[in-house]
Design a protein around this nucleic acid. Structure first.
Lengths: 166, 166
DNA sequence: ATGATGTAATTGAAATGTCAATTAGGAGGA
DNA sequence: TCCTCCTAATTGACATTTCAATTACATCAT
């Protein structure tokens, strides 16, 4: 075939080969996520959700964050975070305090217990990341992965949610 | 071999840079998954779970599968599938029939309604895959993505669940 | 046959996630 | 001020997922 088709293919369905790559991609990332989650669970009694929250708090100045900043930082919906924080608070992993500068606001604070849980969970978790992700790839592949990720993210941010809905 | 340090690094925590790549990777794939899910939802009244089930059934001989084969094929736990099939059956997307060769077994059958829903959902869904994944990458990046996926999967299968638990 | 062991699928309960209100307070203009 | 509109966070109802039994049948060795 001499090229007339390529333009016409845009925005159409993927080819069989593209689709195979897509499926492998999405299935593999899902398998990876789920293996990591189950290891975390069994080694630490933290879920990946707990871990994400604790990680964000550990990295925050004063180990605390406004609830909506936390939500943005880990990419969760506010209501999901709210429910989850309730559960984590019951377990003593975090506290919620009133915000001094905005009376509507809440500040989520990492508790000492939470900090401990996070620290001890992070050792095996980081090891698992190395084992399942880093060690699986050659240095070149790691770079390639990073570039692919960047391209996907950039594209997602530009054409992502907005473009589609308007 | 003159190497002593490289060995020592194995199984240790990732470096800061490796970790950044990991985080971008996992967050981006998650964002991608979630954008796709929300588009599918709004364009078709099927969830990605529904879609996965219907896809597997559409591709199966006779458009039907043993329940556990279906579970394996889409990588779900049996109980999750069971609950989900219950909901899909109530909506008329699938039927469950007794298995002739094994009285314990159930055969999940794609209903005409399910086939229709799947067909009409797949058009916008495939377009979204092209738009958000395929079109985001150069042909070289697509190849790179495929190689990375392959490496991850291979590694996951060899060291994955077993090695860790024994 | 029968009893031990394994597999197919479902169930119920608890944990988690989503969606649509709702509550409460900030911010700016007439 | 007071009214309107916006934002922060939570709540409740409901959908989904996980986990630990449970039910029912198959398989195999005795």
């Amino acid at each position: 075939m001499t090229e007339t088709a390529p333009q016409r293919r845009r925005r159409q369905s993927p080819t069989a080969q593209e689709l195979r790559i897509w499926r492998d991609f999405i299935e593999t990332t899902e398998a990876l996520r789920s293996e990591l989650a189950s290891r975390l669970q069994s080694e630490s009694s933290l879920s990946t959700g707990d871990y994400a929250v604790l990680l964000a708090l550990s990295e925050a100045p004063e180990r605390q964050l406004r609830s909506s900043d936390l939500a943005t930082s880990i990419g969760w919906e506010r209501s999901r975070l709210s429910h989850h924080l309730g559960r984590m608070e019951r377990r003593g992993l975090i506290r919620r305090e009133e915000c001094a500068t905005d009376n509507r606001g809440a500040v989520v604070v990492l508790s000492p217990t939470g900090a401990d849980s996070f620290r001890s969970a992070s050792v095996p978790h980081l090891r698992a990341i190395r084992e399942l992700f880093i060690d699986a790839l050659t240095p070149e592949q790691l770079v390639a992965a990073s570039e692919v990720t960047g391209a996907l993210r950039a594209h997602l941010e530009s054409t992502g949610a907005d473009e589609h809905d308007r």
